[in-house]
């Protein structure tokens, strides 16, 4: 099994990324390229559905941090959903749960940005 695979789909204006496996210094470039590709295409509202993400190191957090200002400058955002407990702990330990909107599941995340998308 590969260390990381990334599926992608679109729900309205929201690009949903589903990383599966491990994001560390070895796999982070693939993750970064997926995020950067979305931003290049002008898709600034991105939901990371982390239901199959077992692990993320600071390399992966850095990839998200590197794009947060860009997407927000374009009235977009990076949302998180379906975090496994150990992945949530990493985000929470570093205070990232204050910086990003974290949702229990994908539906909640999409519902939260729906009014913004209409507006």
């Amino acid at each position: 099994m590969a260390d990381l695979s990334i599926a992608m789909r679109q729900a309205g204006d929201v690009a949903i990324l589903l990383p599966a496996g491990f994001i560390n210094a070895h796999t982070v470039r693939e993750f970064e390229e997926a995020l950067e590709g979305l931003v290049r295409d002008g898709r600034y509202t991105i939901l990371l559905n982390c239901r199959d993400l077992h692990y993320i190191s600071s390399a992966g957090l850095g990839a998200i941090m590197g794009l947060i200002e860009t997407v927000r400058d374009h009235q977009g955002d990076i949302l998180l959903s379906d975090l496994q407990p150990n992945v949530f702990t990493i985000f929470d330990t570093l205070g990232f749960t204050q910086l990003y909107r974290v949702f229990g599941d994908e539906d909640q995340a999409l519902a939260a940005v729906a009014p913004e998308r209409k507006g």
Binding site: S57, A63, L94, L99
Partner: peptide
């Protein structure tokens, strides 16, 4: 400092913090 980090996001610098916290 995590609070400063969040005010001024950048790549890198978090690995040592995770190590010390965990």
């Amino acid at each position: 400092d995590p609070k400063e980090y969040i005010k001024h996001p950048r790549k890198g610098g978090l690995g040592l913090l995770l190590m010390s916290r965990f």
